[in-house]
Design a protein around this nucleic acid. Structure first.
Lengths: 202, 202
DNA sequence: GCGGCTATTGTGGATATCCGCAGGCGCCCC
DNA sequence: GGGGCGCCTGCGGATATCCACAATAGCCGC
């Protein structure tokens, strides 16, 4: 439930059912689609969990589906299943960011392990993304002027210097500075620097 | 020259020579070893460039060689060459951090391109590592007491609070603080925070 | 037009930081 | 035993930051 859903995309009914059954037997929730198009049609950015994609499908290869999902901003880890060992394809997939690339037939336990690991990765990624987004939200709540001041505060400039650069009174800079700290939910310039350097750039 | 050397490890004389010739014809410097052991015997941590490893070798697989090099702290990007398409091996290699995994016979241009890309990556990695190491150097030059103070400065504590916690006078904290800034080559706590958060943790 | 938001400025005081000047104590090495 | 180094401390002044109180002005939407 909380750990996310395993999204299975495979045009072979038997394999879909077998995978769904396997995952269900291990307490994992899954949902299946018979084609890449079917999945793309119902894909939503707030889906969470992982993907299990067949490489060889009628309408679109699993890799192409993955490409399209990436373009849509999907960050779910993808496990590719392939029937015929194609090394270049495996290499290509992994270099594009696939979580794993497994040859069929594969060991049930191994597959389940990989799915669990993928679900865990998704969970961790989302947790990390959440804090990053929280920071960006706060940054967006700053006014243009506040951002100008913040840049200079982060550059270690004194309020006096900032005031001179922006041609405003020092007092104004102090007010902006206080607003920035309040909005960014930090209590010092040091914390602000750590928040932005540790998370992302502005 | 500056871009580093391509280290070729393959137990097939003909392939080694062919690779060396190919690289040389494109202006790239290479050095060859006939076995994993031979390379390990002469490996030095300050080698720079990239690796081209045959997966299938008599004494040790290219992957195992890569493992050992990783254990030795080697960060050179590795390109694996394989004759027989083994998907699990390719997957394993890439997940361990291989730069690429190419099937033989392969296109000359493609291989050279990958080698050039690997050399570029190594160069970029080293540049980044250099700044990280510079930071660590400076951190190590701090005395134990200075580190204690620095931790608290980074936590945004006032000198007064730091002094109370360490049971020393505020003036002493100020002195330590000044020494820290001097040694870390920054001029404010903000810069210090950015330096450490942007580079690495302490 | 009133209210809300943003940007601006001023006064003045409480706190903090930054630094030079001066000095003491303990440890280790030559 | 002198000299270097790390650690500690005090004094005093120049600067900065933090903040409450108080106010003016433009823009925008209801």
């Amino acid at each position: 439930m909380k750990s996310g859903i395993t999204h299975i995309v495979d045009d072979d009914d038997a394999i879909r059912d077998a995978l769904a059954w396997l995952l269900r037997s291990r307490g994992l929730t899954s949902r299946s689609w018979p084609s890449a198009e079917a999945f793309l049609g119902e894909y939503l950015p707030d889906m969470r969990g992982c993907l299990v994609l067949d490489i060889r499908m009628a309408d679109m290869s699993g890799l192409e589906l993955f490409d399209r999902l990436l373009a849509l901003g999907c960050t779910m880890p993808a496990i590719f299943l392939t029937g015929h060992g194609d090394v270049p394809l495996a290499v290509q997939s992994l270099k594009k960011g696939a979580f794993d690339f497994i040859e069929k037939p594969c060991n049930d336990n191994e597959l389940v392990d990989r799915v669990i690991a993928a679900l865990a990765l998704d969970h961790a990624q989302r947790k990390h993304a959440a804090s990053t987004q929280s920071i960006e939200m706060r940054l967006r709540s700053l006014t243009a002027r506040e951002r100008e001041v913040m840049d200079r505060v982060l550059a270690g400039q004194y309020n006096k210097v900032i005031a001179a650069e922006l041609n405003i009174a020092m007092r104004t800079v102090e007010v902006h500075r206080a607003h920035i700290f309040e909005k960014m939910d930090v209590k010092s310039a040091v914390e602000l620097a750590q928040l932005l350097a540790g998370g992302q750039q502005d």
